[in-house]
Design a protein around this nucleic acid. Structure first.
Lengths: 351, 351
DNA sequence: ATCCATTATGTGATCGATAACAAGGAGCAG
DNA sequence: CTGCTCCTTGTTATCGATCACATAATGGAT
């Protein structure tokens, strides 16, 4: 209704001085109102509140940041190379950051070793960030270099430490997968692991190994791969040379897709000859032919959780939240897993 | 005098005053050096340059922004609901923004109508953004409200205006798809369109219509869907009730996956009975069974291009780049498309 | 050599917030 | 009623950059 609300210019945002004048107090009182309104008398607080509302005041972050040396910008490092980085994780993290009054700046970190370190250094120099959340595994030197400046949380690292503990962790789902395959009569299974630089990949591999042993199955081999379907395809080609393997556990859905393709080209049917299970439950996975048995993840929540860890680390008394962030994972049974073919060689149980 | 050696402290960044003192000039000269070094004498410029290098100076953006009222933050609006928003587009845009000295803040815009408008308003009020790049279609009111404050570019809108013009645009690839199907003997084809709020979806639909007519084919129907596989599945169920349709052109790969699933469940083979083509060429699409005929897109480049448009609009004389940003699209032929079954009804050419 | 139009550099004020310190008032014991 | 806290509010300085204006240096033309 009014282009110029009583004191504020047309486009120009109101300042604390204008709010102060309208409220009949000093600018510092307005500043205090924002910092901790409980320290003001109720009457004063009300006056300020009304004035702010009338002028539609919003603080100038540049000015505040200049004075306090605090910055409200966080850095999100996402993989540049991996095209299917789950953007939901990012949006979950961004939403959490925004709710806490921070801005999240996205940077794709790609390339390898030294050039990546250099890029990281340039970014960190470029502007002061309050902290960084990395969805990319950071090598030791990168991480140290970054951390000596600001708090850095690498998504998944924390869960990594909690590896396989209880139902909150990735681990229990991996265990459920192996148990599922064992129940279907599979005796010899293989694993296509993700890049071991990634915590999630290490976690899944380690739980796979333990679960196989625990269930008394034979480990038909582990092939390390990138996260891509192409890489899963190549890894599977190697693994399935061993015809006694009747099930493959892939560390994510893309790898599983690649594995199914490799099996298809060898003329082996899924799941009749070989079962394949994935991980992540991409929205398409239910519609593939065959549809994919996989582990459902709430990626958005995981992104939000990682951000909460970072926010906690930013506070002076910074302690990390104690619960792991992978709650909500669950095994989803679909067509790509089925009974082991014929009579599985039950006699070959001794090592 | 201060605990910081030689002007620059360990944590504390150097200021123009420190640079000025070291260079033996005034702070304003240092400021001018950054603004336009050509206006300084070569000797002065050198001194400043050396001092900056020695102190490892980086400007304090908060201070600059406070004085100039300019802000170096851009807003990226990404869909919150659509989990498979191509994050490469985002990283492409982010990289371009960073090269230009801007920071890109990611916000997921989800929900519908009024609540979304409210959220957008809150974000825009939250802090001054220099501009916004939206990967989400914005409704008229949202857009107007946003644009009265800052320049807004909606990715794809521009290409939308250039619809189907020349080989740079989405259009030619859609035309190539239809021509490809016609060459395989298909006479009656259908289209699963994306949400018509999205420029890319409108574009593909409109070119589909034109190309079908131009190739003298019959339009077997258009079903509008969301971008998801689930939605493609539902849409295809409707379309394939018409058994005379021998090919489906889906507006993206997820839709195509859903369509293939629907056909599979009806006992119809791909491509023997029905051909299916997608769009986007996700990295997995080559490994599906059957692998997907699709249109390859350089999403990263498209994201970068959209950002360039925004950056151009930010400059005072702001004009948009003249070329469309979809160069690099190309048809990729794979297993999901093949010859029309048996003798296509060649006699039914008249309407 | 002198003067003037440029060009190059320096000085002080300013952006909008918080920090540091000072000062006015209320409440209460003596 | 005095004097002393404690609580609330006001005044002035400051963060690090640019802007506006003043001044010094430069280069021709006279």
């Amino acid at each position: 209704m009014k282009p110029t609300p009583a004191g504020a210019g047309p486009g120009r945002a109101a300042t604390i001085y204008e709010v102060a004048r309208l409220a009949g107090v000093s600018h510092q009182t307005v500043s205090r109102y924002m910092a901790d309104r409980s320290k003001l008398k109720a009457a004063t607080s009300d006056k300020v509140e009304r004035a702010m509302a009338e002028l539609n005041y919003t603080p100038n972050l540049a000015a505040r940041s200049l004075r306090t040396r605090a910055t409200y910008r966080l850095l999100a490092l996402v993989p540049g190379a991996s095209p299917f980085f789950p953007s939901r994780m990012l949006t979950g993290a961004a939403a959490t950051a925004q709710d806490a009054g921070y801005h999240l700046d996205v940077v794709a970190l790609e390339g390898s070793g030294p050039e990546r370190t250099e890029r990281l250094r340039r970014i960190l120099d470029g502007g002061p960030f309050a902290g960084a959340l990395s969805f990319v595994p950071l090598a030791g030197t990168d991480l140290l270099q970054a951390q000596e400046r600001i708090p850095v949380v690498v998504a998944g690292e924390y869960d990594d430490q909690m590896r396989g503990q209880g139902r909150m962790s990735d681990g229990s789902a991996a265990q459920a997968i192996v148990a599922h395959l064992a129940a279907l009569g599979h005796r010899r299974i293989a694993h296509i692991a993700g890049p071991q630089a990634w915590p999630a990949a290490r976690n899944r591999l380690s739980v796979y190994r333990r679960a196989v042993q625990h269930a008394g199955l034979e480990d038909g081999g582990v092939a390390e791969a990138e996260w891509s379907a192409a890489s899963g395809y190549a890894a599977a080609q190697t693994l399935i040379a061993d015809r006694s393997i009747t099930a493959i556990f892939a560390a994510n859905d893309q790898l599983a897709i690649g594995a199914i393709r490799a099996l298809h080209e060898e003329g082996r049917r899924v799941p009749d000859d070989v079962s394949v299970v994935g991980w992540d439950d991409h929205p398409e996975s239910a519609f593939l032919v065959p549809s994919l048995t996989t582990v459902h993840m709430d990626l958005e929540a995981q992104g939000g959780h990682a951000m909460k860890q970072l926010l906690a680390a930013l506070k002076p008394g910074g302690t990390l939240p104690t619960e792991a962030g992978t709650a909500g994972t669950r095994l989803v049974l679909r067509e790509s897993s089925g009974p082991a073919p014929r009579a599985p060689r039950e006699t070959r149980l001794e090592p």
